[in-house]
Design a protein around this nucleic acid. Sequence first.
DNA 1: GAGTTTGAAACT
DNA 2: CAGTTTCAAACTC
Length: 722
Amino acid sequence: MQDSPLFSFIDSLSPIEPLKSAYSGNGLQAYHQSLNVTSVSSIFTSPHHNAHKESKLSKGSFADYTENELCMEEGTDKNKSPTSSTAVRLFACTSTITRESHTMTTCSVNEGIVDPPKGPNDLPQPGRFDSGSPDHNTAPCHGVSVRSDLKQDKCPKLEAVQTTNNTVEKRKCLFSTDMQLQDGCQPAKENNEVMGCEWDDLVSVTSGELLAFDSSMDQHHTGVQLAVNNAESCGYLLSKLAGGADISDRTHPTTSSQAYYHEMVVGEDKTENGQLFPEDKKTILSEEIQDNINEENACIPLGCKVETQQRGVRRRCLVFEAAGYSHRTVQKESAGDLSFSTCKGKSSAQNHRNPGKTPSPHVFRGSGSLDLQMDNDDCSVGGFLGNDHNSSQSSSPPKKRRKSDNGDDDSCKRCSCKKSKCLKLYCECFAAGVYCSEPCSCQGCLNKPIHEEIVLSTRKQIEFRNPLAFAPKVIRMSEAGQETQEDPKNTPASARHKRGCNCKKSSCLKKYCECYQGGVGCSNNCRCETCKNTFGTRDVAVSAENEEMKQEGEQTESCEKEKENDQQKANVHSEDHKLVELVVPITPPLDVSSSLLKQPNFSNAKPPRPCKARSGSSSRSSKASVTVQSRKISKVGDSVFIEEMPDILREPSSPGIVKTCSPNGKRVSPPHNALSISPNRKGGRKLILKSIPSFPSLVGDTNGGSAICSSDSTTALALGPS
DNA sequence: GAGTTTGAAACT
DNA sequence: CAGTTTCAAACTC
């Protein structure tokens, strides 16, 4: 390959070196920053992704992309805008990774040399794609997200490599790996151009571009195709998230995605770790990537590992556990943090569910992949497995997550459906956006990769009926508290069950209650009777609301009458009010869910801001106060609200955005994944996404450990899955 | 492990 | 949209 004219030509052209050089050192940071800046939405992505699948994809796609990217770099004009340069860098990273994979020696060396980027900043752009999905979400960008992660991880290495090594050599490696490049270079250029031209756009519009990329690529390269498909799926999902059926329609070839899916799912086992990659790649990736993969967080680069792990933890929590438990776990981890994160995935093992025993769940490609979700990801925000978008095929077919009950690690329970064929929300697996697996004791199960089409179609139907069906049920702000130093104990208060429960006999004290299960207090959206939810009772929330109304009325002259009514209402709950009043001043936590409900439009995103004084309040009080506050805030002004809103929520009316109100008036969770928050989504009774996955802070803190923590906290605010 | 309880999901 | 049925998880024994 090296000798080929094409290669020579490329060499001569190569802008790559400059990029690389730039990359090295500060370059990486710049990259991250650029990403951060752009990537608000991406945040949602990763959590949901299924590591396994992603890893696979990433691998395959990596190589492909890399090649293409490389071509692009070389081929494209140097006069690209800064943005383009960023894009290029990203790609360069990717290519680097690929290269690394090709050259084991280089990789190992690099590893030692470079520290992986840490912190939120690292957010992979791709992740953003997912943003839409709450959970399940996941899927859309598996490939992309993964890649991004890898990129991040590997980027530093790239730097080192480049500095030390000859660019040409690397290229050689790259090429050597994939012959197709030569052919693909040209097409790649086009694609790359698109990508490179506007990374920002790419992020937001990715689907389309990716698709474009895809189309050009797949013609020429088989290997690339996989990547392309992956991209497509991502794009498709994104488009869905974006609400843009248009995009998906025009750009997303079902077939490709299908192929991708097929590849991923069917070949999953075979391909895992490397089928796509050459031996050397395997070796290289094995430690870093593999660990991640195993954990389902997968695909997170070393630098990102910390984050990832945390995410994984969250996911886990989200997923089936009682929120309380999960929450605590998260906090601990976050607090403890970094150190733990540094461990390659081992720690994750702790965190993550899988002891190995339970096979990780396969996440639906489109779904909410949340699952990451699954098991892992609790929050998925998202999981993931987003709603529409999520649902759509995008997510990769990952492996299932483990559930953890009550924080126990017995968690790997799976469904035991008998009549639903695991195609209804009754099925935890299905609801979570994962395929049933061994641990399941279901009968007549159709929730398997083999029946992908059925699963997806069913999922779509359900989503059509209820767009939020797979959305995370609980919005958790807990992490946010961390950032603000909020008392961890208050966490539950800061989260709310979006839809609200309807408990009558359980008094919201048992897992029958989704609120309780999710570790959140009941809200005014709940219709429960005799609520005794230890995380916060509905009465309090109601009273708080009344209080809020009362205060609001005071503030608004025009609404004097209304005010009176409110007061009267409030008086009804005099006791509650007392509590509320006492509490309110103390705790200003945000009730995201309520806020969301009232704030349909979250337009622009500002970087998530820590909540105002939250500290100190007890969960219950905080809860009430939270509710009140949030409402006040929301009413006071969108701007205020927005500031505190997670970026995800703020996102402009994208489909991903959570509708504040469900048809029934119940709380609705944001589609994202969170979410994807989540993808993932809901797990029947078990809440898949107990919290929305956090995303890296937009601000771009790059501080190592602190960064992580902050990211976590940020996450909480943002609600993103990171 | 079987049976009961429970409340969400699905259906009408 | 409300009421009813179905379903599977959660719970109890």
